[in-house]
Simulated scan of single mutants.
Amino acid sequence: MGRVYATPEQLTAWSGKPAPPDADRLLARASEDVDDALATALYDTDPAGMPTDPTVVAALADAVCAQVEYQLAAGVDGTGADDRWESVSLGPLSMSGRRTGTQAPGSVDLAPRAYRALTRSGIRLGVIW
């Protein structure tokens, strides 16, 4: 398992709602999304790859919680399967089929609040020095 930046307790505190029963899985997937968004970011880490600066630690936890909130609000589970199909109905006419994809392969649908949590901390996303 990869790095997980937030706990179910942090998710509960952040959202003001009890963490869902599958919170550990959701937090792990959201942490992967945040990791993908941080592919070019620079910040200090320990040997396990966890951030060491308290501001960055808090920002990553907030970003992961925001990502879970975003996915729950959108009714998605973090697998990406929901982006693959579309369905259209108009009266008696019904059509469905595979989407061609609106995002580049491997790109992350990062929640706006997650992005803001990261940038407020000073982490610069998408910047290579």
Rank of each mutant, 00 (worst) to 15 (best):
T12W: 03
G126V: 02
R113E: 14
P20C: 07
A30I: 05
L42I: 14
W129P: 15
Y43H: 15
A19W: 08
E9D: 12
A19E: 05
E69V: 11
I123Q: 12
S94E: 13
M50T: 02
W85N: 12
A41Q: 03
R3I: 14
G97P: 07
R3N: 13
D62L: 01
T45Q: 00
Q71I: 03
V56Q: 07
D62E: 06
Y115H: 14
L38R: 08
T55H: 11
T7E: 05
A117K: 00
M50C: 05
S15C: 06
S89K: 14
A39I: 00
S107I: 09
A41G: 03
D109F: 09
G78W: 02
V57F: 04
L118S: 01
Y5E: 00
A74C: 13
P51C: 04
D109A: 13
S96I: 08
L110G: 09
D77Q: 03
V57T: 06
D24K: 10
S15Y: 03
S89N: 14
L27E: 01
V127S: 04
V34R: 09
R98P: 07
E9H: 00
G78E: 03
T52A: 11
P21M: 01
P92S: 10
A39C: 02
G91E: 15
G101Q: 12
G80I: 04
Y115S: 14
D109C: 10
A59H: 00
W14I: 04
D77C: 05
D53Y: 11
D46T: 08
L72F: 09
G78L: 02
L42P: 02
S96T: 12
D22V: 04
V68I: 11
A13D: 13
V88L: 11
A6V: 02
S89W: 12
V127E: 05
L38K: 04
V57H: 04
P8R: 02
A61V: 01
A104T: 15
A66S: 10
A61Q: 03
D36K: 14
R124W: 07
S15R: 06
S89E: 15
V88E: 12
I128E: 15
R29I: 05
E86Y: 12
W129V: 11
L26D: 07
G126C: 01
D33V: 08
P8N: 06
L38Y: 06
L110A: 08
W129A: 13
E32P: 09
D46A: 06
D46G: 06
T7H: 05
W129Q: 10
V108L: 07
P92L: 07
A39L: 03
G80K: 04
D44K: 12
A41I: 06
L26Q: 08
A73S: 13
V64K: 04
S87R: 09
Q103T: 14
K17E: 12
L11D: 07
D77H: 03
D36I: 13
Y5L: 01
G75H: 00
T119M: 04
Q71G: 12
R3C: 12
L110E: 10
G106R: 02
S15Q: 06
L72R: 15
